[in-house]
């Protein structure tokens, strides 16, 4: 499951974007070119982000998890992006709150039930200072994937043994 969702071609370091809309737009087009999403995906994510923002004020680093409705997804994957400068996203469940996301995890998924253990361990990872500092020290796409796999796969095993 981890290998199906994460890979180096979907990791972006020092990504140059102006704002959340710009990010969603560029990334959706990239995914569309790779045949992962339908052309309707970009508007689905943009609209959803407006109505239901996805910024999380997690500690140590705020993150955003933009996503659209599943019907626009062809092949599920998770994009990991660290923008050059933290990007402002609306705060989830808040009317006017904002968070400056240091990481953006775009969840391109069809059925959460299939990936729930992985999604759950991602949230646990966002709250895990040691894990996030390690992620922050990663200099290459390969290192990012290594850090993610070391935390997410370890958690996954725990989840499955329950």
């Amino acid at each position: 499951m981890f290998k199906q969702l994460f890979n180096e071609s979907l990791v972006f370091l020092n990504y140059d974007v102006e704002n959340a809309e710009d990010f969603i737009y560029k990334m959706s087009l990239y995914l569309q070119e790779k045949g992962m999403v339908l052309p309707t995906y970009v508007d689905a994510v943009l609209n959803r982000e407006k109505v239901f923002p996805t910024g999380l004020p997690t500690i140590p680093f705020p993150v955003a998890i933009p996503h659209g409705d599943p019907e626009h997804v062809i092949r599920p994957c998770i994009v990991v992006a660290k923008p050059r400068v933290a990007i402002e996203f609306g705060e989830m469940a808040s009317i006017n709150g904002k968070v400056k996301a240091r990481y953006i995890f775009m969840l391109v998924i069809k059925k959460a039930e299939d990936q729930i253990v992985l999604l759950q361990s991602m949230i646990d990872m966002f709250m895990n200072k040691e894990a996030m500092y390690r992620l922050d020290e990663a200099k290459t796409k390969k290192e990012i994937i290594e850090v993610l796999s070391s935390y997410l796969l370890e958690n996954k095993k725990k989840g499955e043994s329950e």
């Binding site: 239901f52 059925k111 253990v117 999604l119 949230i123």
Partner: peptide, 19 residues
């Protein structure tokens, strides 16, 4: 409940159920 019922609400539901 979340906007699409697909990602965030599933994450929270599984977390709450575990807790």
């Amino acid at each position: 409940a979340c906007g699409s019922g697909v990602a965030t609400s599933q994450m929270v539901a599984s977390k709450v159920s575990r807790l």
